[in-house]
Design a protein around this nucleic acid. Structure first.
Lengths: 149, 149
DNA sequence: GCTCATGAGTTGTATAGTACAACTTATAGA
DNA sequence: TCTATAAGTTGTACTATACAACTCATGAGC
């Protein structure tokens, strides 16, 4: 089909390894949206990941999501508004004051997360099926480190 | 839940690690677009990653990109059309026949890639600055494996 | 107490990215 | 020759996103 130049991963220099990391991360990033849409068609990818994050940290503000994902606050505002309209999150005034609102996952939201999460994890388990526990933990650790905790 | 996943005493821990992997991958996926837009504002994220891929494999068809990134062929068609209009790729009939067109990076495309890639790698190097070579290679290997190469 | 700066959020607007469906066209096989 | 298949294009609709301009609460300085 095309003239691929075979390069063994082991013979690459440091910079090439970094480039390979970048390339693989890009492939992943391009795929996750599609995959996500298939796994939980009820909810758009972005809305789902935000709902999931709110659940994971036990409640947060919109601006926290914006920082985590490096998104504009207007984007988050619309997504959160959508989540609220669907009855998946509730908003209450931030005890810390200001205009802040604390977002909480509602019962319906938790239910949806549970359902979608189960399928998502099943898919992931399938993908990691033949990985050793050591490799999984190492992968998680490296990703966390890459993302800057 | 799939019945193909073997239930073992380790399953619970494995699942937690898998969920952590998922979460970290999601954070990454959410960030890369923004980051990419900052690194090469001349070219949209998607167009850039396609140009980069065409370069990396030394030429391919639109349908190959669609498979790699799990995108609809119409999406790829438009992106490739954009790249051609900008003079960054050229199209020639696929020697293998059919309606296929082999995409090649032009001189201008290579130049742009070189420039953007330099900045991108600098950013990545910064991020991986305190990683050991072993960790880098391991990370690249795990990502490649995750992406199912 | 006013005034103003700050921070959180919302809304208007423009654009990129994407899928799906319907179409075109080139080749290979029956 | 006819038909199935594969690659690509185009019409259409919708999501995701940024940027800019706005609203509103709070707290600091006077």
């Amino acid at each position: 089909m095309s003239a691929k130049i075979p390069v063994s991963p082991d013979t690459r220099t440091d910079t090439d390894v970094a480039a390979e990391v970048q390339r693989q991360l890009t492939v992943f990033a391009r795929r996750i949206r599609t995959q996500s849409a298939q796994l939980h068609p009820q909810l758009p990818f972005v809305a789902y990941s935000m709902l999931s994050e709110i659940d994971a940290v036990g409640g947060c503000r919109a601006v926290d999501l914006a920082h985590l994902y490096r998104l504009d606050k207007s984007t988050v505002s619309r997504q959160v508004g959508d989540l609220e309209r669907r009855g998946l999150v509730s908003r209450s005034p931030d005890p810390a004051g200001g205009r802040g609102q604390v977002l909480q996952v509602t019962g319906a939201g938790a239910e949806l997360l549970d359902d979608a999460g189960r399928r998502q994890r099943a898919e992931l388990e399938l993908r990691l099926a033949d990985w050793t526990d050591d490799d999984r933990q190492h992968f998680a650790r490296l990703l966390r480190r890459y993302n800057g905790d």
